[in-house]
Design a protein around this nucleic acid. Sequence first.
RNA 1: GCUCGAGUGGUGGAAUUGGUAGACACGUUGGACUUAAAAUCCAAUGGCCAUUAUGGCCGUGCGGGUUCAAGUCCCGCCUCGAGUACCA
Length: 959
Amino acid sequence: MHYDFRKIEKKWQNYWADNQTFKAISPETGLKDEGQKPKFYVLDMFPYPSGAGLHVGHPLGYIASDIYARYKRHKGFNVLHPMGYDSFGLPAEQYAIQTGQHPAITTEQNIKTYRRQLDQIGFSFDWSREIRTSDPSYYKWTQWIFIQLFNSWYNKTADKAEDISVLISIFENKGNTSVNAACDEDTPSFTENDWNGFSKVRKQEILLKYRLTYLADTEVNWCPALGTVLANDEIVNGVSERGGHPVIRKKMTQWSMRITAYAQRLLDGLEKIDWPQPLKDAQKNWIGRSKGASVTFKVQGGSSDSKDQVKEDRENEIEVFTTRPDTIFGVSFMTLAPEHELVPKITSAAQKDEVDAYIETTAKRSERDRMADVKTISGVFTGAYAEHPFTKASIPIWIGDYVLAGYGTGAVMSVPCGDQRDYDFAKHFNIPIPNIFEGVDISEVAFADKERTIITNSEFLNGLRYKEATTKVIAELERIGSGKGKINYRLRDAVFSRQRYWGEPFPVYYDAEGMPQMIDEAHLPIKLPEVEKYLPTETGEPPLGNATHWAWDNEAHEVVSNDLIDNKTVFPLELNTMPGWAGSSQYFNRYMDPHNDEAIFSREAIDYWQDVDLYIGGSEHATGHLLYSRFWQKFMFDRGWVPKDEYAKKLINQGMITGTSAIVYRISGTDKYVSLGLKDDYEVEELRIDVNLINSADELNVASLRKWQPQFANAKFVLEGGKYIVGREVEKMSKRWHNVVNPDAICEEYGADSLRLYEMFLGPLEQSKPWNTAGITGVHSFLKKLWKLYHSGEDQNFEVSNAAPSKDALKTLHKTIKKVAEDIENFSFNTSVSTFMICVNELTSQKCTSRAILEALAVLVSPYAPHIAEELWQKLGHGDSISTAPFPTFEEKYVAESSKEYPISFNGKTRFTLELPLDMDKEEIEAAVMAHDKTQHHLQGRNPKKVIVVPGRIVNIVG
RNA sequence: GCUCGAGUGGUGGAAUUGGUAGACACGUUGGACUUAAAAUCCAAUGGCCAUUAUGGCCGUGCGGGUUCAAGUCCCGCCUCGAGUACCA
């Protein structure tokens, strides 16, 4: 029987499904003997099921994780390897807007396609644990987490999140003066008496400033074309990541997540996880910690000297953040962001019109415009002056759009001699540029080099360097009450509301006072309502505003018709939905106990599985999902629901598989196409054609091309050497370039095992690399050779012998065991495919038919090519799946030889060879080398300290 | 601009981490088997020179350096890719 991969693969895929071969065993189902096995959790980033289905680039990471999961099963681990779908998302919603088709239906169809495609590749997923973020039984728990966040605050002293009731009792007993919490900037101080006298609404307003998710008027990135708010990571170059629509800034009442409370811990946590350095760098950058000082400048005029009027003083102070407090004597002006709240208050009557006009023009400018001309300097003088905290000099206050409202305090102390932007601004508006750096010429550019700084013209800082000056000035600022050392983060709180339909509804209604109220956990999930249209309403409300059945009856505890709203017992529900990252921020924990309806997961399950041992996915999620999920995990940890504050010990970013587009060259203005080698003789235009029409030698199948698209039906082709050769270009795999290769076609023609091997063989997992279907014949013929090793004769009958394996065969096998085990542990899956090929070639030429060798080989190959391995395993007489067969143990003795010749080279000229026994130790080898020929080699007169011998290689002598 | 990462045959990529550069595969060329094609198998395949076999020289983006020995380490460049961007 020949290698019939279609039959074999179907057979084993059915077998695995029928026998639930890959079902992980965990506490809720009874651990029994599996409890003795160590656990291992291998996770893939679950996909968004798009309508286009999978192309060959998508499964790359899944294949790698599958190999690892299968390997760990062979190694005796109880492996958790689940899969699910991140099934809320924009494409299904946009499709719904266009067609009226409910997103749930589209999503269901797409999932079916995905599942079929995944199944045909032969993954060892535990499908009994499948989750979908759009499933109410799943998003029930997303809503639950939201409620927990709402009911929590961040205690900076304890450096963790705590229940809001703890905070309330502090307020009741001591007010908030002693509370050190992550909260809104504008939180007022109050005593316990104040608190106890506050109205119920007032109390709620204040608590909202402390909650980890809170409602606030935030300046958001509004995308008019999509009718929704976008997070920073959903904007690329000032336009929306999806669709490329313009984005403007707008104030809206939105739910936000107080991720900034966790900024430092998110940074610190990176130290203890094994994630790729570039990804860690991206997160570090995103969090953007900078150390400096906060300095307060009094606004001159109109302020009172009286200490009783604290409030008024505060209103007339400008707080700035600077990383260079040492340059404070170089301040010659201040700049506020146009949006800064103090601007209207301090602007002089004379400057008012000019300032208003400037604010208006900058507000109109989109983020994109603003970024596009960074070079243009603009700004307006406010007419107001601030007072220097040390010199008491008057400093003019300007506004300028190079100062961002969203970073620091939205105000800067401008030191033109030390900062290029301040310098440019000062030059442009003829503001003085005092020099405070010793021996530095600042006539052309600012001097921003911290390391070589020596401060001068700065009173008590004269002669100091950056570090000492900074320490001293901060101490001085603290003494006079004008500032303090401060660490600032670039990270902003994450806006959590989306004006979309196809997302998780908030478990929130608004009471008679308009205050948000959480729906009791017992009544979750709050299911997404049906709507007529998936667009925003005519009044500009989110799509849920179209729902007629979207009110909360707080007595019946159910969602009821909007007509019943009376603001006594029936209230309106929140119209926004949650963003895409909500569903993906705890999904990895839900897999541990996915059907639990009483809790997000059981204590037993989380205690047993703990965390993810290996997480594989794309690096594009660096500052999105991978940051938010770490934030939620830390929150879950603080509140005691999970035992680890980092959820993934190791993470690998698989590279992208790019497409290799095929290009034909049309002579301009004609219907004539010339082959690649002739194109330079004509004026041609390039057309991309379907890559599936090209053979392995870049030769075009002209007949198929004519059928492919009508425009080619009657085209003429100018050949070279009787062939039409196409040009090739490596680019992203996309329908647009006609370079998409579908895994279905590959599985049909070469089989899933070939696809799996080839995807690994292409190159290192983490690298991006081009797909070229032609090369797959290499791994495919390897599989055929592997098959033949177990079969012989004309009819290819299965045949192995029970004779003892030869020495050579054992050596080949154990070399392979060693290399493959190392490769898998190091995630170098590409090189082990080569190792298999060498192994099979050697065993073939050795005419090896030994059962012992061939059994071990089947297990070795099994993680990579599981279908053929299962088939061979069965033919070898085993009644069960190969998946739990123990991984063969490497034994040095089969590989080692009794003695080996070592060629020795000293200066590239003198060479000689020594034959030494393998078991010699260093000293003996050294002695042997010395004894061999003291006169010829360069050791003469030296005293070598050590001799390194590598089998088959040169002796290294370190003198 | 800043931060990472990478440059090795016609192509994808190996190289036990300082030890015979180019494993393995694709492609190409030649051969065997075929009426033929496909499939399969065998041989050659970094460049240059030489040849009667044995051989010789050059070669890992460029220029230096360390070392008995450098694709690998150090210094200075060049090119490409990714991320990020008025972050005070």
